[in-house]
């Protein structure tokens, strides 16, 4: 096993620990950490943020949505070759807000690593970074083996908003951690290794060095399309479906959960006003 493979496997096996450490560090350094489920929620979040701060968005909410999808296509889409390797960051209203994608997150330093992004003038007022939860590395020194995989003319480590006395730099730094189906991959022993991917692009056809053989983190890139295409294995969904299955076999519990479920569905899909009463309630009342 190569070093990068070993370290990535270790991170994934202890992902909750390293995310918690990162969160604690970055928060202590003045950053904000937000957890979201997927691109949809990222778009909603950005929409809210821009509205709240009165930052005009050319192209409106739709363009934020498209950008969120580019930043967070999910790890599978990337491996299928369906997403750009280096999503462009988006800058709004002359530096009022910049939305970027992270290359790595470093737990011990509470640092966000961006590649290929020139900090430019004084930097944005609000810097938002979107990152999949799998991007964490334990320590700054791990970069000695990982940075060479992502060569870039500008590599930046953001460790918080501007400090007291600093004359420029973002006044706010917000890290958005996105699940985007990763927790399900994580729960599947056969597919967890896909999350080791660091998006170096070596395996993608048409890229320099492409060829599908020498993935630095030991992902079987030859068999990859197959593994992505195959119907999701049993383990997918794991405990969530076990809980779901339990509730669905207990009509009373199901009905009780109904109210909450409707609220949950509204959140999940952004459904407008779910009905106040379920069918079964309405039916019962109608039959009286």
């Amino acid at each position: 096993m190569t070093k990068p493979t070993e370290i990535r496997s270790h991170v994934l096996a202890n992902l909750d620990h390293y995310l918690a450490e990162l969160d604690k560090q970055l928060t202590a350094q003045g950053g904000t950490v937000v957890y979201l489920r997927g691109a949809d929620e990222v778009a909603d979040y950005l929409e809210l943020l821009t509205r709240e701060r009165e930052i005009p968005v050319p192209g409106g909410a739709e363009s934020l949505r498209r950008h969120a999808e580019r930043l967070e296509p999910g790890v599978e889409a990337y491996l299928r070759g369906e997403s750009p390797a280096d999503p462009e960051s988006l800058e709004l209203a002359d530096g009022a807000l910049r939305i970027s994608a992270a290359a790595f997150l470093i737990a011990d330093a509470g640092a966000i690593c961006l590649t290929g992004e020139h900090p430019g003038g004084t930097g944005p007022k609000i810097q938002v970074v979107v990152a999949g939860i799998e991007k964490v590395l334990p320590r700054m020194r791990d970069l000695a083996v990982f940075l060479p995989l992502l060569p870039s003319d500008t590599t930046r480590f953001l460790t918080g908003p501007r400090r007291a006395g600093e004359l420029d730099g973002p006044e706010e730094l917000c890290l958005i951690l996105v699940d985007g189906g990763r927790s399900e991959l994580l729960a599947s022993p056969e597919r967890r290794d896909l999350l080791r991917c660091v998006r170096c692009g070596a395996c993608l056809p048409g890229r320099v060095g492409g060829g599908g053989v020498d993935c630095p983190v030991g992902i079987d890139t030859e068999g990859l399309p197959l593994r992505l295409r195959e119907e999701a294995p049993l383990e997918v969904g794991g405990w969530k479906f076990r809980l779901w299955g339990y509730v669905m076999r207990k009509p009373r519990l199901y009905e009780f959960a109904g109210q909450m479920l409707r609220a949950f569905w509204r959140e999940e899909w952004g459904l407008p006003a779910p009905p106040a009463k379920s069918f079964r309630q309405a039916w019962r009342e109608g039959k009286k």
Binding site: A232, L234, F241, G245, M248, E255
Partner: peptide, 23 residues
């Protein structure tokens, strides 16, 4: 209308979670 009914199991089945779909 039989109030014992809940779901047909399709969400789990389509996610590949056959075991729960079967239950």
């Amino acid at each position: 209308f039989r109030p014992a009914q809940t779901c047909c199991g399709r969400p789990a089945y389509e996610a590949g979670c056959r075991e729960q779909a079967q239950l």
